[in-house]
């Protein structure tokens, strides 16, 4: 019926008869008010980035990146934290990506909407809402203690993998659903099995979207603190295996800043951390723009 549409449009007509000049003025005022809100939001971004970078960039030298910390981080560099962050997030992606993509493939290609897909979606959506500190506590109870992995890259990586799983599932599912149905039909009609169709047609076509999701997850994992601090430990030593504890960049930054060990090194660490996540996010955004540009070609 569209009753609501008719009504609101009719209401819109009423004042239009009265004072066009005033309406134009209201329109202009609304524009500037809303533009100001946007400016406020963006000014926070500019402020935070410049605040950290101005104080941190002088500290970020080659030796800061490649040396081990000395004296609890008062001097020296942040190499173990960089290595630890890469190891931890790398492991999380290594575990989370296949599981997430497989889930998305199962939901889109192997099952119809029904009981099992509802349960799986419920799990993914609920997991997305679980606060990171709960992930941290769970990782501590389950991986660190129950499975006996201790504070280690393994425990932290597994915890982060579960944390990023919902994002990877959601973005992969969107990307896979955007693959035209025709591609699947052509592939099947040429005698390809369902799995061959997934591997050779669907996933390649969905790849940019999947990678975008993985990168967004990576950005989140790199900056995560609460889930990591209880599972990966806080060691300043260079890790030798995945059973070793590490102190990731955000944790190192937190410890330096909170305990007032070295503000200069804290800003330096924050600069490296912030630059990393911003670069990842920007790269993901460029990919999204490219991807949606291509989507025009059905």
């Amino acid at each position: 019926m569209g009753g609501a549409g008719h009504e609101t449009v009719a209401r819109a007509r009423e004042p239009a008869r009265r004072d066009i000049g005033m309406l134009k003025r209201t329109d202009r005022i609304a524009f500037w008010v809303f533009a100001a809100a946007t400016a406020v939001a963006l000014s926070f971004l500019v402020f935070i980035i410049s605040f950290v970078f101005v104080r941190g960039i002088p500290r970020v030298t080659w030796s800061f990146l490649t040396e081990r910390p000395r004296d609890m981080g008062r001097a020296g560099g942040i190499l173990p934290s960089i290595v630890g962050t890469i190891a931890l997030t790398g492991l999380a992606l290594l575990i989370g990506t296949p599981l997430g993509v497989a889930t998305a493939v199962y939901l889109t290609e192997y099952t119809r909407e029904g009981m099992s897909s509802r349960v799986i979606r419920f799990g993914a959506e609920s997991l997305a809402g679980v606060p990171s500190i709960i992930f941290g506590l769970f990782g501590f109870l389950f991986f660190v203690i129950f499975l006996g992995f201790g504070w280690s890259i393994l425990s932290g990586g597994l915890t982060l993998a579960l944390m990023i799983l919902p994002t990877i599932i959601r973005t992969s599912e969107e990307a896979i659903r955007a693959v035209p149905r025709e591609y699947r039909e052509i592939s099947l009609s040429l005698g390809a099995s369902r799995w061959q169709t997934v591997v050779h047609v669907v996933l390649p076509a969905a790849l940019p979207g999947v990678i975008t999701g993985v990168m967004l997850s990576l950005g989140r994992a790199v900056g995560e603190t609460a889930a990591v601090i209880f599972t990966a430990g806080s060691s300043l030593r260079l890790p030798g295996s995945i059973m070793d504890p590490v102190r990731t960049l955000p944790v190192h930054f937190y410890v330096l800043a909170r305990e007032g060990i070295s503000m200069a090194n804290a800003y330096g660490t924050a600069t490296v951390l912030l630059a990393t996540v911003l670069l990842i996010e920007i790269a993901a955004n460029i990919l999204i723009a490219r991807f949606s540009g291509h989507a025009g070609r059905g």
Binding site: P180, E182, Y183, E185, I186, S187, L188, S189, L190, G191, A192, S193, Q196, H200, V201, P204, A205, G298
Partner: peptide, 28 residues
């Protein structure tokens, strides 16, 4: 389906090279 081939309405190519489009069936 290898014995009963099908040609669809446009757009009807796979998003890959000309060669790979033709080689797709035999490869699979």
């Amino acid at each position: 389906r290898r014995r009963v081939g099908m040609v669809f309405a446009l757009p009807a190519v796979l998003p890959t090279s000309i060669f790979e489009n033709v080689a797709y069936g035999p490869r699979r």
